[in-house]
């Protein structure tokens, strides 16, 4: 892998919550545009690793080198979709636009609409709906649209299709395919391996950690 393509290089990662060892990972690399599937039983540290890659937590030990755009904080170049996403208490449009607004981006409306289309919504029909008027699947798709609108270098997804009906799951799969095709590095923690083949995902199986 050439250095220009490399996005993440993790070395001897270890994460602990108190005395509990949540993750051990000797090494991991991820290139731009690559799709990586994190597999493993519950409690093996998939979500923990995603939080580290999203720069929401600092590792207990080890290093994460990020080769993104210079001058922009890594946390603004990698974004995480939680397993149960949280929507801000405002309209769908404002939820998707939030990340763009805090970055001071221009062309917000176009980017919001494009992101909503990418997850299978008609922007005009959904934009003004409020957070509590959405179903679970719609919330998941809106939350994904909020991440896609940012056009991050790394898109980190924690169980994105769990508890979704087949239609919502398909929308998410298609959006992830488009993101990957557009050059985003995508990391997916999942138990659902069926749809990973269509993404040509590299698979990493995390092992259970000793307590």
């Amino acid at each position: 892998m050439s250095t220009s393509q490399l996005l993440y290089r993790c070395h001897n990662l270890e994460q602990r919550y108190g005395k509990h060892l949540a993750l051990t990972l000797p090494s991991l690399t991820l290139a731009r545009g690559e799709v990586l599937a994190l597999l493993g039983a519950n409690g093996t540290g998939k979500s923990t690793l995603l939080r580290l890659l999203a720069f929401l937590d600092k590792p207990y030990s080890g290093t994460i080198d990020f080769y993104g755009e210079k001058g922009i904080a890594p946390r603004r170049q990698a974004t995480l979709l939680l397993q149960e996403p949280y929507l801000l208490t405002c309209s769908v449009y404002d939820n998707v636009a939030y990340g763009l607004r805090v970055r001071g981006c221009s062309g917000i409306q176009e980017r919001v609409e494009a992101a909503l289309v990418a997850v299978g919504f008609a922007p005009q029909a959904i934009s003004k709906r409020l957070w509590f008027e959405l179903s679970g699947g719609e919330k998941q798709r809106v939350a994904l649209a909020a991440r896609l609108a940012l056009r991050p270098l790394a898109l980190l997804l924690d169980e994105p299709t769990s508890n979704l009906d087949s239609r919502s799951a398909l929308c998410i799969q298609q959006a992830v395919q488009q993101a990957s095709a557009a050059g985003m590095a995508v990391v997916i923690a999942t138990h659902d391996t069926a749809w990973l083949h269509s993404l040509n995902a590299r698979q990493v199986i995390l092992q259970e950690n000793a307590w």
Partner: peptide
Amino acid sequence: PRCRQTLLTLGAQPLQAAWA
């Protein structure tokens, strides 16, 4: 608690996250 994680992962700076 997911609120703060969401704000941060959407790129909010600490003061922006506090305001939100």
